[in-house]
Design a protein around this nucleic acid. Structure first.
Lengths: 339, 339
DNA sequence: TTGTACGCGTTATCAA
DNA sequence: TTGATAACGCGTACAA
């Protein structure tokens, strides 16, 4: 039988009160910054706290306050993608920084398999968190439903999953797509096409809309190839289709870096040089962008700020602010070698 | 004045007891799997729990149990490095998975600036965690000292910071260095050198020892260039020195990928081709390895397992197991284009 | 301005 | 096997 290691006993309000010669109520008031506490008492308490090394007990405080001082950070992506995508890591960091600034604990919840989903749902129902930040939610998935049922304060980063009382922080997909397309135009390309992915999602259709706006008169919908997913293979297939339909194409806006990487591959296979013959731009500034040869010109999301804003939004909601807030963040165009 | 959103009241043991017509004690026993509970009571309680939707309150449980069911994951690296280094991300994920498997919450604590360090130290003293996993600790830094003083159960991944009652999980630096050096020998290189970084740390000296073992008779210490840090610039400088001293060098083992990347740069500047003229191998399989041209042959750490093992070790310590355990994990050689 | 006393939801002890 | 009841450490009406 192993016995737990003996840990130094922690001082309590009681100890401080005794040491300072006041009541526990007064100590508690001092600790919580209540204004009704005399200078004499204050000093005695300060000295006592320093002497006994008092630190408030969170469990007790949370119990009586009926809160957990924690917010969940829910990721739907599979583990591998979590590691690959620098955006998610940075969003996480940004959120964590903002949260701990506000003395809140962040609990990372990853919902990959169905079993994970159950665990997360249970966790949420258990009152372990006062609110949640949800990244990459899919339209009405189990987790979103649990969150709604529980009326748990929530902030989504990314696509709003239908009507709800939650808050959202999104990037300006439309404006960013317009900006990078415009930049592509400036390089002198005349026949610019787009591989438009995931048109059933806001991000997808907004990127297409931005592309269209940037081209104005010159927009030609035969140069738009819709593909279902933001994936490498979708990009390759889409590029092949585009090439077959319009061999004179000299510029491509791919809806994501993975799509762009696939497009570059298809171009290479068809004997076109990038960027000499065809300029290619992507979106996301994910690992793909730097790994691809040549490195992709793309759109960088302000990931850390995305996380920080999401944190601010849940915190507001937890504090009682009305839901439905939506903040949109601008992105930055990063120009590399692919166009 | 905003009012907090009204959240559905959670059911308590009391509610369940009332509903089931038994006492709170019995319900508690049932919930905690105590064997003294009759079949009749069990059934009534199960029905009651399902009916009122009972979920235990952690704050209350932790309060009375005198624990937090949380373990801290402490990272010393600067934020940027945290994002760059895929290893840390994967270690984190591995630890998180193991921890939540054991119903423990993971709190990510990043100690970058001095201010962060204070915050983390306070957090630790606050009893918010039952134990900690520490990544990349530096010898006797403030955090390590706090952990020791608090006698907080701890597991280090990486270099043991001197004597302590903690547990460690490390990778087999020596064996891995020996293996990749041997592989480099097999490619037919005759004059193999090493840029040996951080010889004041176990990882550094073990990698050198492995290199030496692999070369055996053919080891020549004029082909070893010690550099202080695991950095790009140290790699470049080290390679220049090596090149000046032994122009006929045709193989290099760099103590880390960053060092290797610097070495490749220096080689290119000197007009040597990689891998044709000189074969280069690194260590870590960090982002450098894939970003470098040509991509580096290197050693991959079993990062997720590193995290999982560390989690298991803290959990053991928290459970009362004696400290001082050390587990060593084998690495895998990944062969790319640089050698 | 301060002290008293109660309640937050659990677990644990001890009689029954 | 079960039911009272006492902690656990804290915030906060309420009374003083």
């Amino acid at each position: 039988m192993t016995t737990p290691p003996v840990r130094p006993k922690r001082a309590t309000v009681h100890d401080v009160a005794q040491e300072a010669g006041v009541s526990r109520g007064t100590v508690s008031r001092y600790v919580n910054g209540d204004r009704y506490v005399s200078a004499t008492a204050r000093e005695a308490i300060e000295a006592a706290i320093a002497k006994v090394g008092y630190v408030p007990n969170t469990a007790a405080r949370n119990l009586v306050m009926q809160r957990s001082q924690a917010v969940g950070f829910i990721v739907h992506e599979p583990h591998s993608l979590f590691i690959e995508d620098p955006n998610i890591g940075e969003i996480l960091l940004g959120a964590n920084a903002a949260l701990s600034e506000a003395d809140h604990q962040m609990a990372v919840l990853i919902a990959d398999t169905g079993r994970d989903t159950d665990r997360v749902a249970r966790y949420l129902s258990g009152g372990f968190v006062d609110g949640v930040i949800i990244v990459s939610a899919r339209a009405n998935d189990p987790i979103t439903r649990v969150v709604e049922r529980l009326q748990l304060p929530a902030a989504y980063v990314g696509h709003p999953p239908g009507a709800s009382s939650a808050s959202f922080v999104v990037i300006d997909n439309l404006g960013s797509a317009r900006a990078i397309t415009a930049r592509l135009v400036e390089t002198g390309r005349r026949r610019i096409g787009m591989i438009a992915a995931a048109l059933d999602r806001d991000s997808g259709s907004d990127r297409l809309a931005g592309f269209r706006e940037a081209l104005g008169e010159r927009f030609d919908d035969r140069l738009v190839e819709p593909v279902p997913l933001y994936s490498y293979s979708a990009g390759r297939d889409g590029m092949q289709a585009l090439l077959a339909r319009s061999p004179d194409i000299d510029g491509v806006f791919a809806a994501s870096d993975a799509v762009a990487a696939g497009a570059v591959e298809a171009l290479r296979a068809a004997g076109r040089r990038v960027p000499e013959d065809v300029g290619v731009v992507g979106f996301d500034d994910s690992a793909w962008a730097r790994r691809t040869l040549p490195a992709l010109s793309t759109v960088r999301q302000p990931a850390a700020r995305l996380g920080a804003e999401a944190a601010r939004l849940v915190l507001d909601r937890i504090g009682g602010a009305p839901g439905g807030a939506e903040v949109m963040l601008e992105c930055e165009t990063v120009w590399r070698e692919s166009a």
